[in-house]
Computed example of a mutant assay.
Amino acid sequence: MKRQISILFLFLVTGILTQAQEHYVGQIYADLVKSTHTYSDSLKLDFYTAKENEKDAARPLIVLVHGGGFSGGQRDNPLEVKFAQTMAAKGYAVASISYTLTRKGKATGFGCACPASEKMETFKQTTADILKAISYLKTNTEFSFDTQKIILAGSSAGAEGILNTAYMANHPEFKSLGDFPRIAAVVSLAGAVVDARYITKYNAVPGIFIHGDADNLVPYNSQPHHFCSAETPGFLPLDGDAFIAERLKHLDASYSLLTAEGGNHDWANLGYAFTNEIAQFLNDVIIKGEKIQNTETITQK
């Protein structure tokens, strides 16, 4: 199933849209096309591309995964749509995906009453869906992008999904999911992984991480998910964005950690405003091949 929608998306940068701007950094395209595809069973994705470069096989692909506690949210939330359009206008191909909302309608939710084993199954199911989406995009010839330049981006639950997909291929709980593709970079807005010890020099994927250091749901550093006590069913230690960035630093890999001092979980959404910083990092590490190791504090835009 496919639905084509032409979108005229005008970006005004100092009043003029010009090809002189740097590809993948500046906003160089105006006429965008969005198409909707079913990639697995009833799961869909929206594919965004600039009409002028929709056949460009050298461009990176961003796979975007929305947040919502694995019980809500959708691929065409306003923030996700704006992010996808903005990045497509810079020259990227963007696929914003739906995935199985494992916790939807569950009485225990995804907090401390949810058993840790069920949390792990939720993480695994999300990674399985992301892998299916990537496989569909790579094998469907109507999509043009560089398969060696696949970027995973997500917020909150989606950030947990993309980080586990990028880094946990060798974790015992994730090995059964099969082959994991090469990932070029990650963009995490308030995310965490199951165990950062599984990030090694062989899978130290570069990442840009945006997180509030007072997040009380998804840990900024290394704490239990939702800060559940050890006596609760939902006790599950996770390693957050700051911990992952430190691990990448130790492995001499590229990272950029943008910390909102005193910021809470709202930064899972507020981080979407930092498209210029995200695009610059991706361009530097993927297109130019530079090593970036950056830590800075940020405030709301």
Results as ranks from 00 to 15, higher is better:
D266S: 13
L257M: 12
P233S: 06
K149D: 12
K82W: 02
D179I: 07
D252C: 01
L101R: 08
G263W: 01
I62A: 00
A192V: 04
G154M: 06
G109C: 05
K106A: 12
D56G: 03
C114K: 04
I292Q: 10
A93V: 10
P115Q: 10
A196E: 09
L64C: 01
S156P: 10
M168R: 07
D76N: 14
V285L: 05
T275L: 01
E173P: 03
N294S: 12
E80H: 13
T38D: 00
L189P: 13
N203M: 08
D179Q: 12
G69N: 09
F123V: 00
A253E: 08
S155D: 12
F281G: 09
D284I: 02
H265F: 07
T295Y: 10
T141E: 14
G263K: 00
G289R: 01
S96W: 00
A184D: 08
H265E: 06
R197C: 04
F243Y: 13
P219G: 08
A153H: 00
R197G: 10
K149Q: 14
N77G: 15
H23A: 10
R3E: 11
R3P: 00
M1I: 03
A128R: 15
E296L: 13
L64Y: 03
K124M: 10
A116W: 09
L257W: 05
F70M: 07
V186W: 08
E52Y: 00
D252G: 03
L32K: 11
K132V: 04
F110I: 13
H171K: 09
Q4T: 14
A20S: 15
K106T: 11
K291V: 14
I134R: 02
Q4V: 15
A190W: 00
L101V: 01
H265C: 07
I150Y: 08
D46M: 04
T18H: 06
I16M: 13
F47P: 05
S35N: 11
Q4I: 15
Y136W: 05
A268D: 11
I183C: 08
E246T: 11
L163G: 12
G178Q: 07
R182A: 14
E160M: 15
A253R: 05
F243T: 13
I292W: 12
R197K: 14
Q19L: 13
A30V: 01
L10D: 12
Q223N: 12
T147V: 13
T122S: 06
S117A: 14
V81M: 05
G26C: 04
I162R: 00
K82E: 12
P115C: 10
A50L: 01
Y39S: 08
G111N: 08
L101S: 03
S256Y: 08
D241Y: 07
N164Y: 00
Y136E: 04
C114L: 13
R247L: 02
A253M: 07
K34C: 09
V285K: 05
V25Q: 14
G161L: 02
Q4E: 14
